[in-house]
Structures are given as C-alpha cells and as structure tokens.
C-alpha cells in the first residue's frame, strides 16, 4: 500500500443524444426560448480578415448523411491569435471575433455551415508554426464521446506541408481527410469539408 493522490477523475462522457438541439440549438428543435442564441455565424461586418463559409456533411459508416449532428468550431482570428487569456502571442486581438461557433446539420440535407474568417498561423510547440486550421468537435446520437478533428485549408500547401499535426498522421494518404477544398460561389469563398465517421476515407480524429 502507499499514499493516495487526491486527483479527481474526469466525468464520464455520455452521448448528446437525438435531442441535443433542445439544449444547444433550440430553434433547430422547433421552438424559441432564449433571447440570445449561440449559432454558426462567427463574424460581424467589422470582423477583420477574409470572410469565408465552411460547409460540409458528416457521413456515417454506411455512406449516409448524419442529419442530427452538432458541431462546434474553435479558431484563432485572422492574425493568428486566440481570443483567450492563455494566448500570449504578440498579435492583435479582434474585438469582433470570439472564434467559436456552433452549427447543426440540416435535418433534410445533412449540410452544416459556419460563417467565419480564415484564421492566421498560430505558434505551435517547440517554436514550430502550425498551418492555419480550425478545431472541430462533433457530437450526436450514437457518438459516446465528442469527436475532435482539425480543418486545414487547400490553398495553404506550403504551410500544410510543414504542419506538425498533419505530419504526425502516419499515412500520408489520410492527411487529405483534414484538408477543406476552396471554391467560389456567388462571390463568396467556400471551403468544403466533409467528415467521414467510419470506413473508406475515414476522417482522422484526434485524441486531444
């Protein structure tokens, strides 16, 4: 026997379930209750940087769209700084950008959307710079513990090639599952990022 160390244990995760929208996005559940709702638009008119749309679908192991998924994103601003007291990088904050958003897939089409800005590069560990990226977290019925992944940008080839996280994906062929494809639509920049939960082209999920 020995002494015990009084660390607490992390609370166990449980699925967000099919009715996650009630709590986190009541409009999507079909009712209106809060004066202020958290949503998928991260930007205002004054937010600095290139305004972009991120959209895609989440696909299950049978190839079907997951239509009841909830996603959250967390990202740095266009200068590459997080709006959080723990980020001490010498870069400007943007008062019009929190860097966090919440989106639900559409019950009919399965498409999720974020309106945001393209983030700048962020300092990584040991002096290495990370390529611009958005952290994503998704929960749904049938997902016992939230899945984490990262979205990188197809027009950042050089930065992606040097990114420490992308390079830690052992199979180079799987790295492309983390790259969103840039296109233009109606004068707007759209990045398409489908997330495959299981099977061929399964997205790389991260044990963060």
């Amino acid at each position: 026997m020995s002494q015990t160390i009084g660390y607490l244990k992390e609370t166990a995760s449980q699925t967000a379930g099919p009715y996650v929208h009630i709590g986190l996005a009541p409009h999507q559940a079909g009712f209106d209750i809060f004066q202020n709702n958290f949503g998928n638009v991260l930007v205002g008119a004054k937010t600095k940087g290139e305004h972009i749309i991120v959209e895609g679908r989440v696909i299950d192991g049978s190839g079907n769209f997951v239509r009841d998924v909830l996603l959250e994103c967390w990202q740095a601003n266009s200068a590459g700084r997080y709006n959080h007291p723990g980020d001490r990088q010498n870069k400007p904050l943007d008062d019009d950008f929190r860097g966090w958003g919440r989106a639900c897939s559409d019950f009919a089409t399965g498409v999720y959307t974020f309106q945001t800005v393209k983030p700048g590069c962020v300092a990584g560990r040991n002096g290495r710079t990370m390529a611009p990226h958005i952290s994503l977290w998704l929960v749904a019925r049938g997902i016992n513990i939230g899945l984490n992944t990262r979205l990188y940008f197809s027009d950042e080839e050089a930065a992606n090639a040097a990114d420490p996280v992308l390079n830690s994906v052992e199979l180079p062929s799987r790295r492309k599952t983390l790259i969103a494809q840039r296109s233009q639509r109606d004068g707007k920049v759209v990045y398409t990022f489908d997330i495959v939960l299981q099977g061929e082209n399964e997205t790389v999920f991260i044990d963060i």
């Binding site: 299950d60 192991g61 049978s62 079907n64 997951v66 749904a140 019925r141 049938g142 997902i143 016992n144 899945l147 996280v165 830690s168 994906v169 799987r174 939960l197 299981q198 099977g199 399964e202 997205t203 790389v204 999920f205 991260i206 044990d207």
Partner: peptide
C-alpha cells in the same frame, strides 16, 4: 455506424 475504426491520432 457512427464510430471511427481507425485509432485516434495522438
């Protein structure tokens, strides 16, 4: 059908 089959990236 909603669980990854690959190990998560550390």
């Amino acid at each position: 059908l909603r669980s990854p089959r690959n190990a998560l990236l550390t």
